[in-house]
Design a protein around this nucleic acid. Structure first.
Lengths: 209, 209
DNA sequence: GCGTGTGAACTGGTTCACAGCG
DNA sequence: CGCTGTGAACCAGTTCACACGC
């Protein structure tokens, strides 16, 4: 399948997916692109354009069925395959993600947590099995884990990345404030720097004055 | 000051700011746009274009001084003013941000935390004062807090937003998986949905196959 | 008539390429 | 000679506007 969907569009479509999902839960069965614009802030024309990447799923004159909207996006991007995930670094952020009850809605399934501090392994309450860091490679291979979530301090991040890739991980989400990249284009990495968002907001504020 | 800097550019410049900062710490005094491209992944031409919004600060033939680069961006967007911030919702994510040692590098200064559970207020270890939720308005006013960070469950988010705005907050960062918006354009809101990033990664993976 | 789907027109952000300066 | 700063050329992505189906 071609990689020709623009990243911007992917972002919006996954967001629409989630929106459709909550509409379903609220019992709403249909919605028009104009109404979607009100909820999401995405212009109606853009929404209709984006949905062309998914296929024609609307009904002329009466908008989209929320259920088929969610299903179509889900199918297009295989958002329900539940790829197995693990988390490395059980600080507060790591714990937050590890125990996030809606995590299954992310398209991944959490199956393991790792930390260098074996004290934590024994004492932390968790929904999934926790292991000391030295067992990482073995567990990742055995459990066929594909996504690694990095929530270790910045200086440890590069080494963790290396270990993860070496163990066969293909998807990475990195929360350490250290921009990770990998020459191998088959490995997908997303760096999320939370502080960065604060800086952006701060900058936007200064512009609005 | 005009609001005419594109959001994309603001994102990149704040990122360059942070990059320049770590280069300074590593003792590197100068850097060219080409080298910056290698580190950040931003094309050199784009970097030079972006920096035009900051002013001419490079030296022909020898690149940029890391220090003056950081300072110029900092000055342009007033990234060091230390606007006072508070956090609402002391679950794991809230605690993580509350005690994040590099938080001061975000351009904000953390001064208070709130939670409905007064048990937490008394028992959690924290660097700043914690208050029960009912004291929110009063404390925000007294301490002249401008940024509110929302880390409560989704269903509580809209009400918290209302309370914050009513108390005089102007900047919002919302981590609840519920898209907050405000008709009043003077209020700046950034919604950060962490799960959304997982969905995007999952979608990108499906496209790469 | 309402609302989708879509080619065509447009916009603004990115990339190019080079003049100018140290 | 290297690297910045910048107008000009380009292009992706957004918006418009309307034909078509319900």
């Amino acid at each position: 399948m071609e990689c020709s969907v623009p990243l911007r569009t992917v972002r919006r479509l996954t967001y629409l997916y989630q929106t459709a999902y909550s509409l379903i839960e609220q019992g709403q069965e249909r919605i028009s692109s104009t109404q979607l614009e009100e909820i999401t802030g995405i212009p109606a024309a853009t929404i209709r354009k984006d949905l062309q990447y998914v296929g024609s799923i609307g009904q002329n004159g009466s908008g989209y069925q929320t259920r088929s909207l969610a299903e179509a996006i889900c199918r297009r991007f295989q958002l329900d395959r539940g790829t197995r995930a693990c988390i490395v670094g059980l600080g507060r952020l790591g714990q937050a993600i590890l125990n996030y009850e809606w995590f299954y809605r992310s398209g991944y399934e959490m199956v393991a947590g790792f930390d260098v501090n074996s004290n934590k392994i024994e004492t932390l309450p968790a929904r999934v099995r926790l292991y000391p860091a030295w067992q990482m490679s073995e567990v990742i291979r055995r459990e066929e884990i594909r996504l690694g979530i990095i929530t270790v301090p910045a200086q440890a991040a590069p080494e963790v990345l290396e270990n993860l890739i070496e163990a066969g991980i293909t998807d990475i989400i990195n929360f350490a404030p250290y921009w990770l990249q990998c020459p191998d284009k088959r490995i997908l990495i997303r760096n999320i720097d939370i502080l960065q968002e604060f800086r952006v907001l701060s900058a936007l504020r200064s512009l609005q004055e």
